[in-house]
């Protein structure tokens, strides 16, 4: 069942482009055209096409095919936490 919170989250949803700067600073490369594979459904997508939820202390990127969480990124004063267990791989361009 869709709740009001689901609607609000949906309306606030961005895409991978919105965190391109943070990822570029982190990886030292343009990441929105990097290929990544969803560990849940196996679909490949470019990072820029992932669904991005940024209105939280961290960033959550979900698969546009099955909406499973693929990548979480949290920046703290002491460092950056990257949880990518929902991605089978992320290809970083040479």
């Amino acid at each position: 069942m869709e709740t009001e919170a689901d609607d609000v989250n949906r309306a606030m949803m961005l895409d991978g482009n919105a965190v391109a700067g943070r990822f570029a600073a982190l990886f030292g490369a343009e990441m929105t055209t990097s290929l990544t594979e969803c560990a849940s459904c196996g679909q490949d997508h470019m990072m820029g096409a992932l669904l991005a939820f940024t209105h939280a202390p961290g960033v959550v990127l979900r698969c546009p095919s099955c909406e499973a969480v693929m990548i979480k990124l949290v920046e703290t004063p002491r460092g950056v936490y990257l949880d990518a267990r929902g991605a089978a791989f992320v290809r970083i361009a040479r």
């Binding site: 991978g16 600073a25 343009e30 929105t32 055209t33 990072m47 820029g48």
Partner: peptide
Amino acid sequence: VRGPIGGYF
């Protein structure tokens, strides 16, 4: 500012 950023769109 920092950029330019992005390659997908």
